[in-house]
């Protein structure tokens, strides 16, 4: 299965949520590959706490691979290379977790047929080895996104078996604020958005929309005001939330498209990292955060649950 992680703007928590999704899927027993396609600023190395890879690899990362400069992309076993001791253990029943890092000092590039072919080959290779491959795209409409859409278009994937077995998911991450909801709607449906481009490369609109789901990130509740909230604050939060729901629905980003919601997590405000159950047990992270990542992983993994969203 291929999961693409896109977002309207930077700072939505796309990468940190995707890394946590990858981690949770590996706990479910899946062999997971994480492909850092955020060519301008690869960050997965930092989130998985892999030294010397905080901003991508110096040699032969995905950027070089797509450009044809490396014959195969660099890869790291996250559990072997992470500095975080608790993450090094592979719990019984869990699968592999492998990072394909971006390049240090990589940049965006033009879209060419060769880049698309390289991406197709890459997806083909990782799908043969892993159950789930998460492709973390840069924010907005980027060449990484365009290459990906071309590489999964029905025109080129027709050799794959029957359509129902071709498992692709497209996640759109956005924060739960007015600006972000508007921007996410624009990125998905706008003139230069994802959906029109998907149709340009050969998808039927309905077929592509079947792949797309949204994830609302860092959604606050009244506790964000502090321990004691006033009645006015509670009312205001409810009203704002309702307003956002209406706004999202009006922009076709309503419940029917929603794959999951992650709560505002103080731990992640300081440091983008993997939230382990251990962090919850130590009472550092909110139980709701771990649950949200877990729920998202379970949903993504289960075809029926995914269809039923």
């Amino acid at each position: 299965m291929l999961i693409f992680a896109s977002s309207d703007k930077g700072g939505t928590g796309r990468s940190v949520t995707s890394c946590n999704l990858a981690y949770r899927l590996s706990l479910l027993g899946r062999d997971v590959a994480y492909l850092d396609f955020d060519f301008g600023s690869p960050t997965a190395g930092a989130i998985f706490e892999i030294p010397k890879m905080e901003r991508g690899t110096p040699d032969g990362g995905l950027h070089s691979y797509i450009l044809g400069e490396a014959t195969e992309p660099a890869r790291v076993d996250v559990r072997k290379m992470t500095e975080r001791t608790s993450l090094q253990e592979r719990p019984p029943g869990s699968g592999k977790l492998t990072l394909f890092p971006g390049d240090f000092g990589g940049a965006e590039f033009h879209l060419t047929d060769n880049h698309i072919k390289a991406a197709m080959k890459l997806f083909h290779d990782v799908e043969r080895e892993f159950d789930v491959c998460i492709v973390d795209l840069s924010a907005g409409r980027s060449s990484a996104l365009d290459i990906s859409l071309n590489a999964i278009s029905p025109r080129v994937r027709k050799k794959k078996q029957d359509k129902d077995k071709d498992r692709i998911r497209w996640l759109l991450f956005h924060r739960w604020t007015t600006q972000h909801v508007i921007a996410a709607g624009g990125l998905l449906f706008g003139d230069k958005g994802i959906v029109p481009y998907a149709m340009e490369v050969g998808f039927k609109r309905a077929d592509f929309m079947r792949l797309v789901r949204t994830v609302r990130t860092a959604v606050p509740d009244t506790s964000a005001f502090g321990e004691k909230t006033t009645a006015e604050q509670t009312l205001w939060v409810t009203r704002s939330d309702d307003h956002l729901k209406a706004l999202a629905k009006g922009r076709s980003l309503g419940q029917d498209l929603l794959a999951g919601t992650t709560p505002l997590e103080p731990m992640l405000l300081w440091r983008e990292q993997v939230i382990m159950d251990l962090d919850v047990n130590r009472r550092l992270a909110k139980p709701a955060t771990a649950q949200a990542f877990d729920k998202l992983a379970t949903k993504v993994d289960d075809d029926e649950a995914w269809e039923g969203i």
């Binding site: 032969g60 070089s64 400069e69 014959t71 195969e72």
Partner: peptide, 21 residues
């Protein structure tokens, strides 16, 4: 195992295998 600009026999082997795809 590999490095940019180095002889890449593994890559050449993979290329031969890809001819059968």
């Amino acid at each position: 195992p590999n490095g940019s600009g180095l002889l890449d026999l593994g890559g050449i082997g993979t290329q031969v295998m890809a001819l059968l795809d």
